[in-house]
Design a protein around this nucleic acid. Structure first.
Lengths: 202, 202
DNA sequence: GCGTTACCGTAACGTACGTTACGAGATAGG
DNA sequence: CCTATCTCGTAACGTACGTTACGGTAACGC
């Protein structure tokens, strides 16, 4: 007699609710009661699925990483050249659409929570370094003639640009529109040469 | 009979304490009691100087803007060419030193608080747009031959890069060291031509 | 020197939080 | 069909928060 309800599904629904609340009310509004209400259950069920609030946070953080990572994997696999792959991965990591802006707000919330929570901070560092590694590999594929150090610094710069666009879009979507983000990314990618140049009207 | 104690000084000391707590404990740890303890007084005195917690937050946010803005003003005035001014302003806005990393952490805290507090969000947007305007003016001074649209997109891109470096440094100073930040900025500034190129060993 | 006024520490209030304990209902085995 | 076991909603607990009310104390005008 293992489980009569689907535990995995409930964990996902609860972390999705965590995400939703975090995007809508921000970090101070993220309470167990708010999550329970959003998920349509009670705090008792929440704490029966997760040991405590931090476990819920950690799972929601992993869910966020899963979504962005899988999206990046798909784009990278579908791209025909390393140049288009790099461009697609970076652009999806920024927040060009309303849906991505919600993700950006969640990301900012987790970032701020990481400042006080060592567990979340360690998760954040790991995920971010993985993202840097992915970008570095793509940069090296686009410019195999570059030394490794240049690929590294270029990758960290591109990641910083993308995450900067994320954070700024989260609080000021008007100034940092999708077009502005595209322009900033295209300008940064132009340094890699024509292999990573943007589409004229794509 | 106006005031027997220096109100302005107390406001500054309290907002400095707010800053200190925010950098050390993060947004969840920012309570009136923590601020009072850090300032060496009680919550009664805090709420006698500021109407409520939000007023204290707003004042601390303004203080952060004052510090960065005055530092940018000084660097801009001391620079001999628009190119060196742009470089200096951007580099100080990133977080190359331990002290600036504390500011970066505070900035992230206010950013996350802005997601749920419209007043703080409006302040954040205003300050950030002022920063973009400053950078845009410097870009236009470095490249007067560029059309205004190019100066704008370049400015937003540079600001996004700087703020991205800020946020990433706040939680992972090891990966985003001062050298890495300098390299990323130099690479971005190289697009502006030799007028904004970095010092060889500065 | 005295009354008045502003200042600020103390203590409490109401609220909301994370967490825990317990009981009702549902489900599977025998 | 009965019992044991798991699931989850209910209700409460202790704590910490923002905020408020009040009293003592020190500084000013006269």
């Amino acid at each position: 007699m293992a489980s009569r309800r689907d535990r995995v599904d409930q964990r996902q629904r609860l972390s999705a609710a965590t995400w939703s609340v975090l995007a809508e009310r921000g970090l101070p509004g993220l309470t167990l009661r708010a999550v329970a209400e959003r998920a349509g259950c009670t705090t008792g069920m929440v704490l029966h699925t997760f040991a405590d609030k931090q476990a819920l946070l950690v799972h929601a953080r992993e869910l966020l990483h899963q979504r962005t990572g899988q999206r990046a994997d798909a784009l990278q696999a579908a791209a025909e050249t390393p140049g288009t792959a790099l461009r697609a991965v970076l652009f999806q990591a920024a927040a060009p659409t309303t849906e991505r802006q919600e993700e950006a707000r969640v990301w900012v919330g987790f970032l701020a929570a990481s400042l006080a929570d060592p567990v979340l901070a360690e998760l954040h560092r790991g995920y971010n370094r993985r993202f840097v590694d992915r970008v570095r590999g793509l940069v090296a594929a686009v410019r195999p003639d570059w030394p490794a150090a240049d690929c590294s610094s270029t990758a960290t710069g591109l990641v910083a640009l993308v995450e900067g666009l994320n954070t700024l879009t989260a609080v000021d979507p008007a100034t940092y529109s999708g077009a502005a983000q595209r322009a900033a990314l295209d300008a940064a990618l132009a340094r890699l040469g024509p292999a990573a140049a943007g589409h004229p009207s794509g």
